[in-house]
Design a protein around this nucleic acid. Structure first.
Ligand SMILES: [Mn+2]
Ligand SMILES: [Mn+2]
Ligand SMILES: [Mn+2]
Ligand SMILES: [Mn+2]
Lengths: 217, 217
DNA sequence: AAAATTTGTTAGTCTTGCCTAACTTTTATA
DNA sequence: TATAAAAGTTAGGCAAGACTAACAAATTTT
């Protein structure tokens, strides 16, 4: 049985791996994600290696083992199912669900998660557009194209958010944006890269940082 | 902010107090309830005293302070709301809910509990017939009359169970018993106190220990 | 009232998960 | 390629929550 802390390390490793694409995960980056010091992350890596959830040698590469990855995906499954529950059934807004799900994801009961999944009608995506792994750990592929990648004059559809923080999500709402919205890129400023977009007749300017956190197709 | 462990100690103190009626709570009894050694319970009592959740002096009486009691009741509220959710919405059986609720009761989010309460339509009792405290910490009084107190020839209604263990609850079901059932006491054996009862035309024999764990009115 | 038993307390130790400070290895830069 | 910077590691320490062993106080039994 894994502790909450161990689960959080595995989840962070998976997240960084998927986000970094090809890049290697480092002790410092892992520590930053978990709000701990590198020394602490290093201790835990040894422990997780000992339990064979990660592979790594001193000063070497860090990788989840198959077992570690399976555990991590299961935690993501629980997290996203709980987010969906909070959003769909309890009427939470999409910027409130993440924090509570961070706690709920550690509840240990396979039966609970299976029943929750069924109760929610086997959802494929959470309120942020992220795919929910099924019982086997399979999930639809993650989007890679960002709003910042869209050419001037082109239109796209918003399918997910990369940043899950309240501050970002509330800003998204304020701009009149939401999942499945059609977004047209009107122009980009040479000066600082600011992007002008149009959503449902309404035009706005957004920063490149903002545009890098919206996934589109 | 209280840790899960601290919350469990407060909850145990409340439970023992309510169960013992007038009796005083002791270190040993508290320890037994929490499956720890008396030395461990003693350490925690000092800590909870320091934080003014309990009153006590060395070798003296243990009592929850008002603050401690409020915290404890809130945990009970969360526990019973979750049990009700699992039973009503997720289709758990009444002998499965307790274990999972032991975990869920520690989730920290007032908003979550209020919304859950509303979602369940402000239930007054959990699946075991125990009263659910409201936001103010008020709850209907606990039943005191047990099946073992019922006279021969008298009838009563089962309103709650005292023991929440799977083994007990499954046995209750096996005997064809459930909340709100009418139970008639037919006879009691002089030899070992075994009680003969009748429920919906069906007669059965139950031990005194069993009868002490069924609350009736 | 003395002895025996039960109940409660203390001291010292362990593990987990975190920290700081100092050090080593790797990588980037001049 | 030598040096500086960044990344990673180790040693030692701390708090929480548990344990055992030894001891002290309170209660019960004789
Ligand atoms: Mn989330
Ligand atoms: Mn999400
Ligand atoms: Mn329960
Ligand atoms: Mn209950």
């Amino acid at each position: 049985m894994l502790s909450n802390t161990e689960e959080n390390y595995l989840k962070a490793l998976l997240k960084i791996t998927l986000l970094n694409e090809n890049e290697q995960v480092g002790t410092n980056e892992l520590a930053k994600h978990l709000n701990v010091k590198p020394a602490t992350a290093n201790d835990m890596l040894k422990k997780l290696k000992e339990k064979s959830f990660v592979e790594y040698e001193k000063y070497g590469k860090i990788n989840l083992t198959d077992e570690g990855k399976t555990k991590a995906i299961y935690i993501v499954r629980k997290h996203r199912l709980w987010e969906t529950f909070l959003y769909e059934k309890l009427d939470f807004s999409w910027d409130e669900v993440h924090e509570v799900a961070e706690q709920l994801e550690h509840i240990q009961s396979t039966k609970l998660i299976d029943k929750l999944d069924k109760y929610l009608n086997f959802p494929l995506f959470d309120p942020h557009g992220d795919p929910i792994p099924n019982t086997k750990g399979e999930f639809l592929s993650i989007y890679k194209k960002k709003l910042s990648d869209v050419e001037i004059g082109q239109s796209c559809k918003m399918v997910a958010v990369r940043d899950n923080s309240s501050s970002f999500l509330q800003y998204v709402v304020k701009l009149g944006l939401g999942l499945n919205n059609q977004i047209k890129v009107i122009s980009k400023q040479d000066f600082d890269g600011t992007i002008e977009i149009e959503v449902e007749e309404k035009k706005s300017f957004v920063s490149t940082k903002f545009a890098e956190n919206l996934f589109v197709i």
